[in-house]
Amino acid sequence: MDYLIQQVINGLTLGSIYGLIAIGYTMVFGIIGMVNFAHGDVFMLSAFVALIIFLALSQLFGTINLALALLLVLVAGMALTALWAWTIERVAYRPLRGSFRLAPMISAIGMSIFLSNFVQWAQGPNNKPLEMVPTEIITIALGAGSITLSWKQITIMVTTAVLLMALWYLVQKTPLGRAQRACEQDRKMASILGVDVDRTISLTFVIGAALAAVAGLLWMVNYSQVNFADGYVPGVKAFTAAVLGGIGSLQGAVLGGILIGLIETLWSAYFSLAYKDVAALLILIVVLVFMPSGLFGRPDVEKV
């Protein structure tokens, strides 16, 4: 029983990270109907940014307060990753609006290939290990057994919860959120009514990337290592989460992320570690084929 609870906690931790990445997929898809294939690599890049800034801080100032360091890394990582996403949208996606059907997807694939190879070029092909948060754990007695909760897991879940609330406020209560929802429904009409569509789309990419940067830092915290190829599989899993939750839906993306995290952890714990990625891939295929609108999505009506 406590083994199960332990696995659920691990799954929730992992799921929080997937959920944060999934939001970027779902927001971009909602507003321009495009699968931002490079988003997983933006996430990977952000993990590197977090790693380097953390190292630089500790080299420059020696030992500083860990919470302060993490906060600085978080803010800087979000800003720098957002700049990357802004540039990518500007250079690789914006000129393609109104181009032929496959162009944005091909461009996104090209960007994904470019980013992972760029990071490989800049940082080398090896794993980069670094313990950011001490591995200390808290043990909670539970009936006969006990479960453990590490500082890492607490950091991850608290950060995710706080940022999701901030995002919810941003999308529901601010003019930006309104503009975003307007563009989602009818871009042409929104622009006639004075919404700056280009700016809104740019900001959507920026927000998605900033959340991916949070996920990148949390990934470093959780796994204590990163590699240039780490954008691909988490990217696919986060996309699966977005699809499972119903693409275009924010709460769907978070819920989907948590579900994927749980499924992956439980599958590895009880079934087969070797095929843990296959579980997520199978879910992706089954959901796309049999319930493409996911849990919270709107059905796609074909326009003739």
Partner: peptide, 21 residues
């Protein structure tokens, strides 16, 4: 050889932007 995929990715984006066909 290390630059091959870097160039490929970049060229794909560039081509889509400049001459998508």
């Amino acid at each position: 050889g290390k630059y091959r995929m870097l160039i490929f990715g970049f060229a794909m984006v560039l081509l889509m932007v400049v001459r998508p066909r």
